[in-house]
């Protein structure tokens, strides 16, 4: 187990180093941030001052070494645009993104599980067929397009829900959140639903497959033979065994939800990290891009590491195959 852990940890660190070098070197080979920072009427002296101030005149490996050194101390450089530490900028936006992502996952489970159960219990019925058609659409339609249509229908035409921003926020443990106010909740609903659509389809399919499979197992037939009510069989016997794989998958999907929040945040002007990175790419605000990418890569690597370790604990074959 320890050798497996060590090799897995080493691999995570290697991934991080490779990603940071790739991103860093890449960013230096295209575009000139000096042009983005200066107005076209700047004098050569101003230009040199800016280059010097941002350390752009040093050799590239110097800049990288300095960058790594600072990154390890939590200092990822100041945003060229905002003049604030890039990491702080991103961390300030993070609660909004997390709130959106959690909201989306919650909706995915709340909507997906009941529909999946319904489709799994009577797979041949018309309702079940409609549910499955919906899930195919949820899989194949582009998220951003659905988001636009939501804005068009619910905000522009019907005027039911707001289409941009977080609305009124209140502080919860020092972090501003939207879901505790009526206005904030109204603002959260459309973007969260938009982000959730793909996951709803996924949850429907997983639940349906699980229910169909488990319902045919001997212990369920035995429970039925004992004369238990269908409701009890479903709750206690079928659902419990269906939910385990579901939770694993949903845990893994959390990272993907955060990545795809980039799209939803852009449509609904949700002030999260995704909106920040899209804007930063537009103006080539390198410290912000770097900080975002490294933060996401770290986040993903940690999620993957945890999932792998959990798998190794649950299934000994994994560590025997990978660690030796």
């Amino acid at each position: 187990m320890i050798s497996y852990l060590a090799s897995r940890l080493l691999q995570t660190i290697a991934t991080l180093v490779v990603m940071s070098v790739l991103v860093f070197v890449g960013l230096y080979m295209v575009g000139n941030p000096v042009d983005a920072l200066l107005s076209s009427s700047a004098t050569p002296a101003e230009r040199i001052a800016v280059i010097h101030a941002f350390g752009l005149d040093r050799p590239i490996w110097d800049q990288y070494a300095l960058f790594v050194w600072k990154a390890l101390h939590g200092n990822l450089g100041n945003s060229f645009v905002y003049g604030q530490p890039a990491l702080r900028l991103i961390l300030a936006r993070m609660p909004a993104t997390l709130e959106l992502a959690f909201g989306a996952l919650l909706l995915a489970l709340l909507i997906g599980i009941p529909l999946g159960i319904r489709a799994g219990l009577r797979p041949e019925g018309l309702v079940s067929k409609s549910i499955m058609t919906f899930s195919i659409l949820g899989f194949s339609l582009p998220t951003f397009w659905i988001g636009l249509m939501m804005v068009l229908v619910f905000s522009v035409e019907l005027g039911w829900l707001p289409s941009s921003g977080r609305g009124q926020t209140v502080e919860l443990l020092g972090v501003p959140v939207s879901f505790l106010t009526r206005d904030g909740l109204a603002h959260l609903l459309l973007p969260a639903l938009n982000l959730a659509l793909y996951k709803i389809s996924l949850v429907i399919r997983l639940t349906r497959a699980g229910v169909m499979e488990v319902s045919q197992l001997d212990y369920v037939r035995f429970a039925r033979a004992k004369g238990l009510t269908e409701g009890r069989i479903l709750r206690v016997h079928v659902l419990k065994n269906t939910l385990i794989p579901l939770i694993t998958v949903i845990g893994l999907e959390f990272g993907a939800v955060i990545a795809f929040a980039v799209v939803t945040e852009t449509i609904f002007a949700w002030p999260g990290m995704g909106k920040l990175i899209v804007d930063a790419i537009g103006v080539l605000d390198r410290p912000v891009i770097l900080a975002y990418l490294l933060l996401t890569v770290v986040m993903f690597s940690v999620i993957n590491l945890i999932v792998d370790i959990l798998y190794a604990i649950v299934d000994p074959r994994v560590r025997l195959a990978g660690g030796a």
Binding site: V23, G26, V30, A259, F260
Partner: peptide, 24 residues
């Protein structure tokens, strides 16, 4: 296959985003 595994553990939109931020 390890490389494939690692790559597939990142959402494709994130990888594309990183690359395009770098490439233009």
């Amino acid at each position: 296959m390890r490389v494939v595994d690692i790559q597939l553990s990142f959402p494709s939109i994130l990888i594309a985003l990183i690359l395009l931020a770098v490439l233009g």
